[in-house]
Design a protein around this nucleic acid. Structure first.
Lengths: 196, 196
DNA sequence: TACAAAAACTAATAAGCGTTAGTTTTGTAA
DNA sequence: TTACAAAACTAACGCTTATTAGTTTTTGTA
């Protein structure tokens, strides 16, 4: 018997993907072995293949789950009837909460996408590029409407996304500051830097 | 004969480390093989061991070179007789220029330190933690002297460092914007966000 | 020109990898 | 209780890895 039973709405495949996210984050995709993953799941390595197709498939599942989550949220934000500044704040807050709530998967998508195989690698990069372009468009709108300083929107998007990504280092300081303060301080820092 | 000769002041070991930086950045430490590295250098794999001790040693050389560069510059900055805001700007600009001029090595130090072996792993993390604490101290000084808003200095340091780190994605846009504009825009964005 | 050291080479090793094949155990429903 | 399918197991394959051993070639110097 497996030591870890999947719950009612959680297939064993989901359990494997969750454990893989944690393992890939901690050791990196290449350094994490299927034998280690199997031990974390509570089975022998070959048994994993009753539920998944390959190691690569696990990375694909993780990366595209994250990519789709971000894209969906962006669409929802674009449809909102509010100022560009408000939209940017919503997006920043969403990124922050994803970094905190879906840490393992977001981390893996951010760091290990490199090891995706074609055509998944190209797909993933295209999706990310497309996402960034839509963020730039929102910033350009804000600049046009004089809500924002006339900075280079590419640089600003790069700065925003990278700053939020940096929450991967947050684990260490979690105890000292509440996540509410964290969110507000980051939004303040990043928005004040560009708002007129 | 080796295809690539070391120059006057460049030992073959230096050539190997440079090629390793590039390879580790592109493929990751684990995915990059010594055979690939040897090919890049222009020899057979075992010949590398006439110049280096191990693959791990290469990663150590790269990571600690970068760590020491940053620490040296921080010391020089701390000794300057100027405001906290000025110091922060100097540090931001140094980080940006390192990201642009020493791209491969900084990238590897940022992404692949995980694969350092003990005691090097602990050393590296301690050095980084120490570095961050000294940045926090500079920010605290700025807040105390009312140069800066009263934000949480840990959050601000995290935001600054992460934003600058994000320049690893810069390669793509290099053609569109000059590095001077880039530097100024980023400094503006990040400093305006915290300066009173 | 001869000698010594440096650095290249070929061949091989042990270990670990993802994965497959074939078999046995387990859980479910008739 | 029997039968079937899902999922576990053991054993093993072919491949790649970093690295070592032993040998030959190249290089610099006396």
């Amino acid at each position: 018997m497996a030591k870890i039973k999947p719950g009612k709405n959680t297939s064993k495949k989901d359990v494997i993907i969750t454990k893989a996210s944690s393992l890939f984050r901690m050791k990196g995709f290449n350094a994490a072995s299927m034998r280690e993953l199997a031990e974390a799941v509570g089975v022998e390595a070959p048994s994993l293949y009753n539920h998944i197709g390959s190691k690569s498939e696990l990375l694909q599942a993780i990366c595209f789950k994250v990519a789709n989550d971000f894209t969906s949220q962006l669409i929802a934000t674009e449809e909102q009837n509010c100022s560009a500044v408000n939209k940017i704040e919503m997006i920043i807050r969403f990124h922050i909460s994803m970094m905190l709530d879906e840490f393992d998967t977001v981390f893996v998508a951010n760091h290990e996408w490199k090891h995706l195989q074609e055509p998944f690698l190209s797909n993933f990069l295209n999706q990310r590029r497309h996402y960034e372009k839509r963020l730039v468009a929102i910033l350009e709108e804000g600049i046009r409407k004089k809500e924002l300083r006339s900075i280079n929107p590419y640089v600003a998007v790069l700065t925003l996304l990278s700053a939020v990504r940096g929450l991967e280092f947050w684990q260490r300081h979690k105890k000292n500051i509440s996540t509410a303060v964290l969110q507000d301080d980051m939004v303040t820092h990043l928005l004040n830097g560009i708002v007129k």
